[in-house]
Design a protein around this nucleic acid. Structure first.
Ligand code: NAD
Ligand code: NAD
Lengths: 257, 257
DNA sequence: CGCCGTTTGTGAACGGATGCACAAAGTCCA
DNA sequence: TGGACTTTGTGCATCCGTTCACAAACGGCG
């Protein structure tokens, strides 16, 4: 059933109070369908650009400017935003603060999500100190580690606690997002405990593929994978250059001027 | 222990010398077309799974197993690998060590890429200490920082140098890959210097969109973006659950939409 | 030697994402 | 008030990536 989902316009006023989104369901586009995954991944980038504009006192921005700041095609930006509702003004652009609000709401950042970080080593410390953490809709519920030498040490404004507190921390703070920054051999075990405790979203920095049950969302960050992708393109580039340049002047020793 | 030395008796492996790839051009598939971007991004994951198998002494692996270890569909794995050439044996699977070699070669990891890290703060230190760095085809040419208090300090087995050495380091070591781990306001400036010095591939950890000329490749890693994407899905999940089960669950009623 | 079970490699159908190009909708100024 | 100008929102064609499903290829066994 369903088929053509109603007509695009029924009222006429672009609903300031409403959510531009008939279904109260979060995570759905104005047309009732879920937001495209690719759009979701770009919204945080737009949001960051918008914050930057807002801080600089810019009150209105056109899709050309905003898309340039976000590093994407302007048509793509407009289509992405159109999925949230019709929040632009033709001939003018978008109201920066209003768009910040709408994008934040679409991403579910009207609340502050408590996050638990497991692993207080080099990486865990870097993450916990990261400003973009606290300033962007999240708060650190706890940093956990198994090394008793680290317990009590303050990172940012949170003290490291022992990993045996994991279940308590998750339950008490209703944590649903966890970050794994422990060595690879310990990661799956930590993951299992997080999931058992109720965490449904995991950001994994350990270099292995985590096994999780359905309904649990895992994203990964891996420096070496990123570098390998870069290396691939770098080699292709240099090979093409060698192909083109006749053998004499390969490796350019760089101009001296 | 490793059983890698035990070469299975002769004769099994197809074309060790050849590359199964007519065009000598790196970065092209067996059919001459460039490798799909999505495939390139997965090859490092396969490679990691293969290393793990190899270390465990497994000599042969079928696409089902390998794809499970890599967390992807088995048809996808086979299609990805088929772009590199025909390196499997029907009815048997893939020779692990041989596939390690082929995937490494496809990614351009037969050489060791020198990488320069700019920013020796919390994050830069975590990255420099990361084992997956040195063990996976890369070496740290230098860690650079502007803070004179950090100069000379050893991280891993590299001493921090002043950022004014940037151009020298890049030129002397023929560095083409750079990692940016400085505060956001300094990132574009560092990026410009890297590019001017000859770096064509950049991994950016600072939370902003870098502007680079054509021909320069930028990848970014951003914790807060990853968390925001996770938050989006987390909220959708919990909203759906609330929709279904009003808080204190009652008799599960049939869904009606 | 021929058959059987296994696994690869890929043709084909599908769905999602991208980007062009333009009509509709708005502003602003004379 | 009206017309020129700007910018949004989107239809559409295209491209890329995923997945199914199966014939071809292989080893092994009786
Ligand atoms: N994705 C990336 O770009 C990237 C970069 C650097 C490091 N890493 C990975 O991140 C992880 C952490 O790196 P690091 O440099 O911080 O390592 P680290 O050794 O400095 O820190 C690891 C911490 O985890 C703690 N730990 C170990 N087992 C634990 C357990 N079961 N429960 C709780 N805590 C435990 C240790 O006590 C230690 O403090 C490693 O898996 C590393 O490979 C990833
Ligand atoms: N992507 C992520 O997940 C993530 C996580 C944490 C931090 N970060 C970002 O990474 C960057 C570094 O974070 P951090 O925690 O290490 O910060 P930090 O303050 O600990 O370290 C930054 C270092 O950069 C140095 N620096 C500043 N300007 C420089 C310049 N012009 N040239 C060379 N060095 C310079 C400083 O002296 C300092 O040592 C920041 O942009 C931060 O926002 C990203």
């Amino acid at each position: 059933m369903s088929s053509s989902a109603g007509s695009p316009d029924s009222g006429g006023i672009p609903d300031i109070a409403g959510n531009g989104n008939g279904s109260g369901q979060p995570g759905t586009a104005a047309n009732g369908r879920p937001l495209p995954e690719a759009t979701i991944a770009r919204l945080p980038v737009y949001l960051r650009a918008l914050y930057s504009l807002s801080e600089r006192g810019v009150s209105t921005v056109a899709s050309d400017e905003l898309s340039a700041a976000a590093g994407v095609n302007s048509a793509k930006l407009r289509k992405d935003l159109s999925h949230l509702g019709s929040y632009g003004i033709r001939g003018v652009g978008y109201d920066v603060d209003y768009l910040v609000y709408q994008v934040s709401r679409a991403l579910g950042l009207t609340q502050r999500w408590p996050v638990v970080i497991v692993g207080g080593g080099n990486l865990g410390r870097a993450l916990a100190n990261y400003g973009g953490f606290v300033n962007r809709g999240f708060k650190i519920a706890a940093i956990l580690d198994s090394d008793r030498g680290l317990i009590g040490r303050r990172i940012g404004d949170v003290a490291v606690r022992h990993v045996s507190d994991l279940e308590d921390v998750v339950a008490m703070n209703k944590v649903v997002i966890g970050v794994i920054a422990v060595p690879a051999p310990a990661a799956q075990g930590v993951c299992d405990r997080l999931v058992a405790a109720g965490v449904t979203s995991i950001l994994n920095f350990a270099p292995l593929v985590l096994k999780v049950p359905d309904g649990v969302d895992v994203r990964k960050v891996d420096l070496s994978i990123e570098l390998q992708i870069l290396a691939f393109h770098a080699r292709r580039r240099s090979a093409v250059r060698v192909e083109r340049v006749p053998e004499d002047e390969q490796v350019p020793e760089e101009e001296s001027v």
